[in-house]
């Protein structure tokens, strides 16, 4: 019960994303990463780890896809932040005679929903080509 309450709140927060106060709020929302000299902020770094926990088993190392799940560095070139959040939270099924692709719903998974924006930030940085493969290096805390 507790978990689903937390999820609901975070979910609401995620959907209310554009309420960020920055001038270029739209840009920050679609490109919420900070990468300097190959080093990443805490959000991207955490996204990398959470990706490793919950997504890598299907989508492969560095978001590059596997023999049965899409390459997310490609997907995020034409998927908005909102579509991304929606797919992760609700899942997606594409089961036909020739393929059986099922993305489970992560809407009630604390480690995914809590850090959904971090996972997005990491994958978007990969997709935009500003972050290479492998374990990113963290910026020093200022």
């Amino acid at each position: 019960m507790k978990i689903s309450l937390v999820s609901a709140c975070v979910l609401a927060a995620a959907l209310a994303g554009p309420a960020r106060a920055a001038n270029d709020a739209k840009d920050d929302y679609e490109r919420p990463y900070h990468v300097e000299d190959g080093k990443v902020d805490q959000s991207v770094y955490n996204g990398y780890r959470r990706y490793g926990n919950s997504c890598l088993q299907c989508h492969g190392p560095d978001g590059l896809g596997s023999s049965y799940a899409p390459n997310l560095t490609e997907s995020l070139k034409h998927m908005t932040h909102e579509q991304f959040s929606d797919t992760v939270i609700n899942g997606r099924q594409n089961v036909t005679a020739s393929q059986q692709n099922v993305m489970p719903s992560f809407g009630h998974v604390e480690d995914v929903v809590m850090y959904l924006d971090d996972i997005y930030a990491y994958l978007k940085a990969r997709s935009d080509g500003v972050l290479g493969r492998g374990r990113p290096e963290r910026m020093l805390k200022k």
């Binding site: 492969g60 590059l64 896809g65 596997s66 023999s67 493969r133």
Partner: peptide, 19 residues
């Protein structure tokens, strides 16, 4: 019929860009 654990990662190749 390729896939399985081997289909993860090897589909994209292992290792980083900078390795």
């Amino acid at each position: 019929g390729v896939g399985g654990w081997a289909g993860i990662g090897m589909a994209a190749g292992l290792g980083g860009d900078n390795e």
